[in-house]
Simulated scan of single mutants.
Amino acid sequence: MFAHRRYLPSTPALLAFEAVARLGSATDAALELSLTQSAVSRQLKTLEEQIDAKLFVRQGRALVLTPAGRRYAEQVRDVLHRLGSASVTAGANPEGGALNLAILPAFGMHWLAPRLADFARAHPEVTVNLSTRLAPFDFRSQPFDAAIHFGRRDWPGAGYQPLMPETVVAVAAPGNVPEGADVAEIARLPLLHLDTRPRAWARWCAAHAVPAPTAPGMVFDQFSTMAQAAIHGLGIALLPTFVAAPHLESGALVPAAGGAGQSIGDYYLVWPEERPAPPSLRSFRAWLSTQLPGA
C-alpha cells in the first residue's frame, strides 16, 4: 500500500489538469478530452482539494499555473509519460522489456543500426524503440530511457557511458578536387558546413597548419544531406568516418587532402541518473561496451 494513498488523484483528474496546464483553458481541455467544460472544472476543483494546493489563478479568460501548479505539472507529465510507456511495453512485450532510445540521425543510421541485429540476437527479450532527437532534452518530460549524445559531458542530470570520439575526413565527388591539391588549396574550395559543428573546418585547417577558411558555404542540419550535396559536386564535406565509409567504398566520394582528424567532441550514451535503470537499459549498456573500438 502507498504511504500517501489518500493523496493519489484519479487518472481522469490528472489528465484534465495536464491538459488545462498545457492549453490554459478548461474549454480547450474539454474539447481535447471529449468532456464538458464543467466536468473538467469539477476535476480541477476535486484535485486541488485532494492535494490541498492552489494550482491555477484566473487571468481574464485564461487559467494560469501558480508556482506550485508549474512544479506539479512537470511531475504529473513525467508520471503520465511513464505510465503510458509502461502500458505499451506490457502489451507489446509482456515477457521482456522495451528500451526507448533517442538517437542522433547519422550515428543511429550508420553506426548503431548495422549493429542492432547482434543486440537482438543476444537479447530477444528486449524491444528497442528508436526516435530522433538533435539536441539534449529533459528526461522528466520525454518518454526515453536513454539517448545518444555528442559533444561534452554537459547533459544535466545524466549518467554517461563514453562511446567514441568523432573522427572526421574531408571528402569530395570524384573530379571535384584538382589533382595533387594540398590542404591549403582544399581550404579555398567551396566547403560544406554542419550547423552543429560551426568550427569544424577551422579546427581541421588548424590541425594542418593552414589559415582557416573565410568564404561562406552551404550549411546543413544533418550529415546525410551534406554527404549527398558533396556527391553531387556542391563542395567539400567534412564527414565522420562512419558516415563517409560507404560512400568511399562505392566510389561516390573520394578523400580530399589532409587525411582523418578528430572532431570537437565525443559520442556518449546518456540516461537519467535520478531514475533506476530498467533491465533493458542495463543489457544495452553491457552490450554496447562489447561494440566499441578496442573492445
Rank of each mutant, 00 (worst) to 15 (best):
P105T: 15
L101D: 04
N129Y: 11
L104R: 05
P105K: 08
G151M: 13
G97P: 06
A90C: 00
N93W: 05
G97W: 10
I103E: 10
G96C: 07
F144I: 03
A117I: 02
G84Y: 06
T89N: 12
F139R: 01
A106K: 05
E125Q: 15
A122S: 14
E95V: 07
L134Y: 11
G157Q: 07
H149G: 02
A146K: 02
F144A: 07
G108C: 07
W111K: 01
R121T: 14
L99R: 08
H149W: 08
A120Q: 12
F137L: 04
G157Y: 05
A113R: 14
T127F: 10
A86E: 13
A106M: 08
A102K: 04
A92Q: 10
P136Y: 04
L104S: 06
V128W: 06
H123S: 12
N100T: 02
S141K: 04
T89M: 06
L116W: 07
R152G: 10
D118L: 13
A117D: 14
R152C: 06
A92N: 10
G84S: 03
L83A: 06
F107V: 07
S87H: 05
R133G: 13
H123R: 14
T132E: 15
E125M: 02
L130G: 07
L104Q: 12
S131G: 08
A113L: 15
T132Y: 15
S87R: 13
F150P: 03
E95P: 04
Q142H: 12
V88P: 04
